[in-house]
Amino acid sequence: MIDVLYFAWVRERIGLPKEQVETGATTVAELVEELKAREERYAAAFEDISALRVAVDQELTDFGAPLAGVREVAFFPPMTGG
């Protein structure tokens, strides 16, 4: 089981901030494909992944990152701090 977190408009589009996902995905990209296949709201949120960023266990990474041993994956738009 992996905790999957969503922030900002990704959270709004999917309709929840966090869920536990049982997945056989070996990379973030595969996890995204699994989620997109679930329901239209996921497909809409992940339609253009170039508009998204991903963190694995709270470290920014890319969609090719492996999921072995990972506890937490977060999806969000580019950050706007400051």
């Binding site: 922030f7 969000f76 738009p77 950050m79 701090g81």
Partner: peptide, 13 residues
């Protein structure tokens, strides 16, 4: 400032 603008996980609405 440059780094925290685009590398710290904050989002403004």
């Amino acid at each position: 400032m440059d780094y925290l603008k685009s590398r710290a996980p904050f989002w403004k609405k």
